[in-house]
Design a protein around this nucleic acid. Sequence first.
DNA 1: TTATACTTGACAATTTTAGTCGGAAATGGT
DNA 2: ACCATTTCCGACTAAAATTGTCAAGTATAA
Lengths: 132, 132
Amino acid sequence: MKLSTKGRYGVMAMVNLALYDHEGQVALKQIAEHEGISESYLEQLIAKLRKAGLVQSIRGAQGGYKLAKSPNEISVGEILNALEGILAPVQCGDNVNCCHNSSCKVKPVWEKIHTAVNDVVFSIYLSDLIKE
Amino acid sequence: MKLSTKGRYGVMAMVNLALYDHEGQVALKQIAEHEGISESYLEQLIAKLRKAGLVQSIRGAQGGYKLAKSPNEISVGEILNALEGILAPVQCGDNVNCCHNSSCKVKPVWEKIHTAVNDVVFSIYLSDLIKE
DNA sequence: TTATACTTGACAATTTTAGTCGGAAATGGT
DNA sequence: ACCATTTCCGACTAAAATTGTCAAGTATAA
Ligand code: FES
Ligand code: FES
């Protein structure tokens, strides 16, 4: 039930982008330095965020990244979903990590956890995190 | 944010024990067969549950395991804590998986997730899972 | 005493994580 | 036109965690 660095770094990077949102794009190098993260690694993460439509890239010299939407339109849930996949403790029905038992008694537990986590992360927006 | 098989198998095994609670102890072999789990692997898991005081072992021939408390005194949270550790997405302050940033903006997010998950798992008891 | 079953610890295959690396493509500045 | 900068892409890798397996030993009921 731990988050990997993908999700952790990703949210950190997005907060960073939100902080510098008003002054145009920010180079990946800057973010990596600010957060003390490997730049090469962050590259992979932000690629996913771009494909998810959360950030926008400007190529070439003086290029960089910026948020694709306003900070109050991007939730932590979207970020984590893009990087970590579905936030369920068990994904029932994927026929490998599930019990294959028709009278499964614990499935409701996994579902409740999933719902509770989603309720939290989809109700917190970047704008909530950058104001003090 | 996925649960490992430790937690999943552990809860399944505990439900199984709760179902047969009235007829004394159950051999590990039985549980393993019922749930389709490796017996040798389950051995390690139930050892942790025993050390956590959730199950009780009866050694010798015709021995086995039984719940150490009544099903309505054992929550899913206790089981998962024993097997997976603290159920927080990020453990701030363990000085390795944390941001070391005094002005961390995301810590409240991790804390809210942790609280939400705990609220769910510590409010579901084995007795809730075995009735119907 | 003998069979059953718990207990412990070492070992190993597989998968995931957490990066690294090299180069290609785009673009603004000179 | 050229060059420095920066994104983009794919392959590769070391380390760690996961998911077991196995063998030997201990306790106890029958
Ligand atoms: S664990 Fe998914 S249905 Fe039982
Ligand atoms: S992530 Fe733990 S304090 Fe920032």
